[in-house]
């Protein structure tokens, strides 16, 4: 497994406010990287940059040693990003939501795999209920079903534990570690305290940054 995402000299400023600067990040296969820091220190922004959504930064990104802009398509085929909003359509059933996500990755439709993925996040029996009638936690679970439905090497998860109940949290935590153990990698932000593990690495944001002397 030679998965490798690197950022060099990453700096991002949003309207004259510097979020972070001179940041080097190395993500290898086989680890769970937790981005930590106080509110407003740029965790979500960093995740968006690392997942190739934001162009408003300085520095360089490399995927498997090649500049990101050259291999963006290949990178996207290995990426699964879950943002603050779950990306679940209220008007569609969980099954229909997954149909779209499966097709979006260019894969042939497979009902069995979708049912399997839904059962895996404890949504068996809710397959055909409009997602709008499900709870916030259940909607989040629909999004999490994609982890199994469309397997990718690199997971970028922004607050994936939001609205998930205690059992679900434990299962998801185990899933993240299993993914790392199998050679994948996870970049995650969460307010939930992850259990210590040799696979878990912390990436503090904001602490190294002194409040700007000019302020």
């Amino acid at each position: 497994m030679s998965l490798c995402l690197q950022a060099r000299n990453l700096a991002c400023e949003r309207d004259d406010r510097s979020l972070f600067a001179d940041l080097d990040v190395d993500i290898q296969g086989g680890e769970v990287v937790r981005v930590e820091g106080p509110n407003g220190c740029g965790k979500t922004t960093l995740l968006k940059i690392l997942s190739g959504q934001l162009g408003d930064y300085s520095g360089a990104l490399f995927w498997n040693g090649r500049p990101m802009q050259d291999v963006r398509d290949a990178f996207l085929r290995h990426l699964l990003y879950l943002g603050h909003a779950p990306g679940v359509k209220a008007g569609l059933s969980p099954l229909e939501n997954l149909v779209w996500y499966q097709a979006l990755s260019g894969e042939r439709s497979s009902e069995d795999r979708r049912l399997d993925a839904l059962a895996n996040v404890d949504l068996a029996g809710f397959e055909d209920v409009p997602a709008g009638q499900l709870s916030a936690g259940q909607q989040r679970r629909i999004a999490l079903a994609r982890l199994k439905l469309t397997p990718r090497a690199l997971w970028v998860l922004d607050e994936p534990f939001t609205a998930i109940d205690r059992n679900g949290v434990a299962a998801l935590e185990a899933t993240l570690l299993d993914h790392a153990r199998a050679g994948g990698s996870v970049i995650v932000t969460t307010h939930h305290e992850l259990a210590a593990s040799p696979l878990l690495r912390r990436l503090p944001l904001g602490e190294s940054m002194q409040p700007s002397a000019e302020a």
Partner: peptide, 10 residues
């Protein structure tokens, strides 16, 4: 609902 992000990352 966040689907647009996913559309962009497809």
């Amino acid at each position: 609902d966040g689907s647009l992000e996913q559309l962009l990352l497809a």
